[in-house]
């Protein structure tokens, strides 16, 4: 029992470390891509570590099995969500660049 709690404490500390630096990156970087890298990747790692800690602390088999299923599906859904956001940033930056290029052409004419 005590081993489980120590392992959960280690996972909690690792998750806190990555989460705090993810927050720092979210406020320190200037462009949306770098913010997406810092926030999404470090946030995923922090939440993953927290879920591992909660899996170790689960009171019964039923809740433990559910937390395990959530853990596996989180590995699939987290990169899918960040990929959707990344594609949106890519397309919107493309649109703004084209619009500014068109404006420049208008001025030169």
């Amino acid at each position: 029992m005590i081993i489980r709690e120590i392992l959960a404490l280690i996972a909690f500390l690792v998750g806190t470390f990555f989460g705090i630096f993810g927050m720092v990156g979210l406020f320190r970087f200037r462009d949306p891509y770098s913010r997406l890298h810092a926030g999404s990747l470090c946030g995923t790692t922090a939440v993953f570590s927290y879920l591992v800690a909660l899996l170790l602390l689960a009171p019964s088999l039923a809740s433990g099995a559910r937390v395990f299923i959530i853990l596996v599906f989180f590995l699939i859904s987290a990169p899918t969500g960040s990929s959707i956001v990344g594609k949106f940033i890519w397309e919107s930056e493309d649109a703004t660049r084209q619009r500014s290029a068109m404006k420049r052409e208008d001025k030169s004419l």
Partner: peptide
């Protein structure tokens, strides 16, 4: 809008962890 969407992406993961934490705590 891109920055807001990035923040929303992280917030959804955090709220998922909050739900799981509350479920474990209440039992």
């Amino acid at each position: 809008a891109s920055d807001r969407l990035v923040a929303l992406n992280v917030l959804s993961a955090v709220s998922l962890a909050l739900l799981v934490l509350w479920g474990i705590r209440i039992g």
